[in-house]
Design a protein around this nucleic acid. Structure first.
Length: 423
RNA sequence: GGAGAGGUGGCUGAGUGGUCGAUAGCGGCGCUUUGCUAAAGCGUUGUAGGGGUUUAAAUCCCUACCGGGGGUUCGAAUCCCCCCCUCUCCGCCA
């Protein structure tokens, strides 16, 4: 959510931002609702002031006196008026709130222009993804794949996209998680194990609601949402709180399974481990002082990159263009690992600065040393990292002629052996 | 799941229909006293929204906020209803 003052005072700035993101928002309608809201607010507040003044006068009068009774009669009319106008005001306020939720975050000046994924800028390229790998196969075509990653039984037990991980498959997933958490811990992120169901208020604060409701699994009868990412419970940790400025920045990481309905996805994107409904991920999250947020974003991105480097996987960093930067983000980098068998890039981390967008929704503030007043923090997050696609990339890039997979050196202590076998 | 007790400002804790944004204490901040520290005395002390003034801020005016939402009433922290949370006891249970 943006600052309502910004929309009132600099509507053209907001219009330009919306255009850069290639989104459609009727800002004039929002402004009209805003001015209606303010007019109604003033009316109601004036009536309330009348009530308060009368209240003070009546307190001084003897209860049954003619003056008192006259006042009651008089104020009954005012009371009825307040009730009516206040109902209108509440309605307008709700309209305004929903309208505000429909306005995207402003993209940062450094975000490149562009509409589609083709317009994203390759910001960095690491490793030799072009090196020919004669043995490479799409991971789902590797002989024995289904012994370690059993999609058919997952579909029987739960549904499509809920595979079983078995034997070395399960072990490799666990080794990756352990590796990520240990490395992230060394980089300064305090490990947190959060709830994996959240309430509607939390999902709204991070932007999953109201629009992306269909992407989450919802429980009945408690109306809790299975987290699509640890970002949701983690960000909400400080919801409605005021931190001390000296406490910033706060660095945290969390492993959770992530649940995504992925309604509407299809084709090659969803083969094998590329896209599943439940997957393990470690999320990195920072709450920072606004003046440092872009430096902190770069550092967080480098922390995520370091994991891929240690795993010796070819990857690239995309700087997302305006049309691909996302509704709530001001700036976003995607980390994509090379799938040597599929011969395509797989997104394994998305590192974003939300500036104050989430913090305003979630009311996460800090007390400024300078002014003593609360200000909104900036929030930054990114995966560090998502397991299945990294796992898939290891399978594809490290497949040997004998059908085994060489485990990256950094991972061997966690996996316990040097090769993964599909037998 | 059952029974009971609670939820008031940064914290503790008064307040059962009107002058209560709310007594008091602690903490914080400022000043005085002081060689320093401590102590004492005095003063001050939340958040949000709107309006107005202003280059801007401060100041100023108004409104809201006593777990959340609704109701009763001229008027609600206070009365009624629903929900959430905490604590105690019981039940169930990894």
């Amino acid at each position: 959510m943006l600052d309502p003052k910004l929309i009132r005072e600099s509507p053209d700035l907001v219009r330009a931002a919306i255009a850069k993101k290639h989104l459609e928002v009727d800002l004039d309608a929002v402004l009209a609702i805003d001015s209606m809201w303010r007019a109604q607010l003033q009316e109601v507040e004036a009536l309330r002031a009348t009530q308060k003044a009368a209240n003070a006068a009546m307190a001084a009068l003897p209860k049954g006196s003619p003056e008192f009774i006259a006042k009651v009669t008089e104020m009954k009319a005012v009371s009825a008026q307040v009730k009516e106008k206040d109902a209108q005001l509440t309605e307008t306020q709700e309209k305004f709130r929903l309208a505000m939720l429909s306005i995207p975050n402003l993209p940062h000046a450094s975000v490149p222009e562009g509409r589609t994924p083709e317009d994203n800028v390759v910001f960095a390229l690491h490793g030799s993804h072009m090196e020919p790998k004669p043995h490479a196969l799409p991971h789902w075509e590797i002989p024995g794949f289904e012994r370690l990653f059993d999609f058919a039984r997952g579909a029987k037990v739960t549904g499509a996209g809920f595979p079983f991980f078995i034997g070395d498959g399960a072990k490799l997933a666990r080794a990756l998680l352990q590796f990520f958490l240990e490395e992230d811990g060394k980089a300064g992120y305090v490990e947190v194990s959060p709830p994996i169901f959240v309430n509607a208020a939390s999902a709204t604060a991070t932007g999953q609601l109201p629009d992306k409701e269909g992407q989450m699994y919802e429980t009945t009868p408690d109306r809790l949402y299975a987290v699509p990412t640890a970002e949701v419970p983690l960000t909400n940790f400080f919801r409605d709180e005021i931190l001390e400025e000296s406490a910033l920045p706060v660095y945290r990481c969390a492993y959770t399974p992530c649940f995504r309905r992925e309604a509407g996805s299809y084709g090659k994107d969803v083969r094998g481990l590329n896209r599943v409904h439940q997957f393990d991920k470690v999320e990195l999250l920072k709450w920072v002082h606004p003046s440092t947020s872009y430096d902190e974003l770069d550092k967080l991105r480098l922390d995520a990159e370091a994991l891929l480097r240690k795993l010796d996987l070819p990857y690239r960093v995309l700087l997302m263009c305006g049309g691909d930067v996302g509704f709530a983000q001001a700036k976003k980098y995607d980390l994509e690992v090379w799938g040597a068998g599929q011969k395509r890039w797989l997104e394994v981390s998305s590192c974003s600065n939300f500036e104050a967008f989430q913090a305003r929704r979630a009311q996460i503030r800090f007390r400024s040393k300078e002014t003593g007043k609360p200000e909104l923090v900036h929030t930054i997050n990114g995966s560090g990292l998502a397991v299945p696609r990294v796992l898939a990339a290891i399978l594809e890039n490290n497949l040997q002629a004998d059908g085994r997979v060489k485990i990256p050196e950094a991972l061997v202590p966690y996996f316990g052996k040097e090769y993964l076998s599909f037998k």
